[in-house]
Design a protein around this nucleic acid. Structure first.
Lengths: 225, 225
DNA sequence: AAGCCTTTGTGATGTGCATCACATTATATA
DNA sequence: TATATAATGTGATGCACATCACAAAGGCTT
């Protein structure tokens, strides 16, 4: 399925700088697919020659660690995915899986490269995004390894509220086992910490729904133990 | 101090694609400085409008974590540093410190940006490098958090041997306290593990010099506990 | 609604490693 | 050469968290 990229409401900031000609190339050389929760969008170890643009929905970036699956981060549309594969050896070094319904554009590498070369602003935006990712990785990694579980769980909840859902009430589209892989703990610890937070009146859990009642406390926990 | 960049023997793969004109711009708009071990090249929190090219020597990329300093990784010349600062808010988000004698070129951002825009190959190379960094970060982070100390120490030693010094005998230009910040442990654990490895005949320590005697064992330890 | 599989809650137990504490050895400085 | 300072080695202790082991509850499927 093709579509007119210029009309796409999820046109990224980077894409906004493209020439009409480039838009046309994009429109004619991409594929839009729909994914259901749990569907694999990018699979670690597989060959691929597409750049992926997550148009709508949420996804998890994850990879096989030495002992268990590791969720690197949760991403929100609109965003590009799989750039390292595209510019590397074409073998996906990580997986991306939809954690909500999602629409995804697959763009052929050669087209993407061509557009990149013909649009300076666009390639600058891509570089900027990659740099931001690098910084985020650094800080995320330092935090995860230095903080205790309660701190990391607090961070995760705050990120869902402030970055992903932009709301203090949300339903995390991950099981506790997945949360554990995101926060670097065991499933059991996730359960324990969440019920602790609930008992302390910091959050309110109703089924899988979470409401943050006391953001200040969460931030305190994030900073101390 | 200026110099002719085209003659620079540490001309990166990326730079090799530059036009003569760009080389001239580079030559006229950069500064070469020498650093001694321990000197700060980039300082977290400081304003900066320079891209840094590490021409010779080794450096550590490090940042302030929530509880203690964290060494993100050790880098080897030739390599660019501080790109995220350049393309971000111009405030350094991490520090870089020389861990051996080092020569460094400071290139003005505007010149660098201009060269980037005028040389597609060059900007492609930069994108590729950033993508590789991202992948490396992912894997490094997954390993560090999942493996036990012995495994992480083994990885560190293997990296020094295979990636940094390209030799099984080397002197790590870091104190054990710094190694601890690199490997996510305590100084004491670093000491204990190293003496363990030495007693087991896996490495031979002579002062600060380390000789890897049994690389197979190190790889085993890296994979298991 | 019955049965099955997945997800979640919670106690009991064990352990890897941080932390503390101090001895010992290198390195720098006067 | 003496003296302060930093870097290392090594034991003893404690604790955060993984792991194990079930029970309970939700969500499927037929």
């Amino acid at each position: 399925m093709q579509s007119d990229c210029k009309q796409c409401p999820f046109n990224s900031k980077a894409a906004a700088t493209l020439s009409d000609c480039s838009f046309e190339q994009l429109s004619e050389n991409h594929l839009v697919l729909s994914f259901k929760k749990g569907d694999s969008i990018i699979k670690q170890g597989m060959y691929s020659t597409n750049v992926v643009f997550l148009r709508t929905g949420l996804a998890k970036i994850h990879l096989q660690g030495p002992y268990h699956e590791q969720i690197v981060r949760v991403v929100k549309s609109p965003t590009y995915l799989g750039l390292p594969t595209t510019f590397g050896d074409k073998i996906n070094q990580y997986s991306v899986t939809a954690i909500t319904e999602a629409e995804v554009c697959f763009i052929d590498v050669h087209v993407f490269q061509k557009i990149l070369n013909e649009n300076r602003e666009f390639s600058n935006e891509i570089i900027i995004e990659l740099c931001q990712n690098e910084l985020e990785s650094f800080h995320r990694c330092a935090n995860r390894t230095q903080k205790l579980i309660r701190g990391n769980m607090a961070d995760a909840l705050l990120e869902f509220a402030d970055k992903i859902f932009i709301s203090d009430t949300f339903t995390i589209p991950l099981s506790q086992a997945e949360l554990a892989n995101l926060v670097d703990t065991s499933r059991e610890s996730v359960s324990r910490v969440l019920t602790e937070f609930d008992k302390d009146g910091i959050i309110k859990m109703t089924g899988k729904k979470i409401e943050i009642l006391n953001k200040k406390s969460l931030k305190m926990i994030s900073q101390n133990g």
